[in-house]
Amino acid sequence: MNRRDFLKSTAMLGAALSLPSMLAAGTGKRPEIKTSDAANGGSGLSKLPVRTLGTGKAAFPVSALGFGVMGMTYNRSSHPDRKQCIRLLHEAVDRGVTLFDTAIIYGPLTNELLAGEALSQFKDKISVTTKFGHEVVNGKGTGRQDSRPATIRRYCEESLKRLRLDALPMFYQHRFDRNVPVEEVAGTVGELIREGKVLRWGMCEVSAGTIRKAHAVCPLTAIQSEYHLMHRDVEKNGVLDTCRELGIGFVPYRPINRGFLGGDINEYTRFDPENDNRQTLPRFTPEAIRANTRIVNVLQNFGRTRGMTSAQVALGWLLQKAPWIVPIPGTTKLSHLEENLHTLDFTCTPAEWLELENAVAAIPVTGGRYNAEQQRQVGH
């Protein structure tokens, strides 16, 4: 079942999916994960299962699935108008999502402004995380990195204003800056934490060695990297093992591979050249899409006998990897939000997930995830 089929069947199946008898049948059993009033402020809103990123003073209880805000304004072709985006973000809050993710470079700046307008009224109930590192001058990205202490401080103050917050729940370094020692970055964020302007911090797309150096100076709450069935490098390069050892959470971004694993993208899909980076990525050429569709078919076949869409299979596979992993799928459609959250209603056995892994691993992935310039910015 792909996302288009899911939309057609939602009206008929929506009520059935909510029945306890249906959830208990077969593998459709809700995972036994405790909820926490701390994650939603005792708001009385719907509750989702809760997971904790980080440990000790760096611990961060959040909903088991977060929400990536980026595509509402940046890099994902057409999107709804501002009012519709705000309405969808409010729907996500109502359904129990407590973790929302944005960044200074998304737009640039416009994504933070949207998140601030839409979510600041819930700041005691939810958390909006953002990222620094990509240089932005006069509202435009330069393509360079700048994590100098003075810049981090300036970006922090500016993000607080755009997000309408008193403190940033978590501040990620978006990309490693080769010109600034990671210990200096960690020390600067540590100062911001002591000053109460930042509550926790994380890093994106860094190596296991860099994680260790940074964590030794200021404990990390989470690492954010791309991770899904078509890109599993963090299993091999020591990043996941390091997070497990040090008690650091992990946040997979693009968990449905930029929408591809949802089944709605094919070789004839055209991406907006003005606002969609997929048209620059080797994995999204028509030839690569045609070849990689075999992987989507595997997910669809796996989900068909379990009542799951391919997107739900992709998210479910990530969720079962470790209890400290919290994916952040993004969307501009209420039906996709509901589809994503319904993933939490399903479980499969370890043997079933291994069967899926083996079936996917038998198909070579065609095309790199980034072009050469973007690839140079990751893994340091």
Rank of each mutant, 00 (worst) to 15 (best):
F6I: 01
L7P: 01
L13Y: 07
A16F: 09
S18P: 08
L19A: 15
L19V: 13
M22P: 10
G26M: 11
T27W: 10
K29C: 10
K34E: 12
G41W: 09
G42P: 04
S46T: 15
L53R: 05
A59G: 08
S63T: 11
S63G: 12
G66P: 10
F67T: 03
G71D: 06
R82I: 05
K83A: 13
H90A: 09
T98V: 00
L99K: 01
D101Y: 05
A103Q: 00
I104N: 15
I104A: 12
L109M: 01
E117P: 08
L119D: 04
S120M: 00
K123R: 15
K123H: 11
V128E: 06
K131S: 00
F132A: 14
H134C: 07
V136E: 07
V136S: 06
V137S: 08
Q145L: 10
K161C: 01
Y172T: 12
H174T: 02
R175Y: 03
E184A: 15
A186I: 11
V189P: 13
G190I: 13
L192Y: 02
G196T: 12
I211Q: 04
H215P: 11
T221G: 14
A222P: 08
E226W: 09
E226L: 07
R232T: 09
G238F: 07
N257D: 15
G262V: 07
G262M: 09
G263Q: 01
I265H: 11
Y268E: 15
E287G: 12
R290E: 14
T293I: 13
V296L: 13
V296K: 14
Q300Y: 09
F302Y: 07
G303R: 01
M308F: 03
Q312G: 04
T332D: 02
L341D: 09
T343S: 02
T347Y: 04
L354Y: 02
V360W: 03
A361K: 14
I363F: 05
G368V: 05
A372M: 09
A372D: 12
H380F: 14
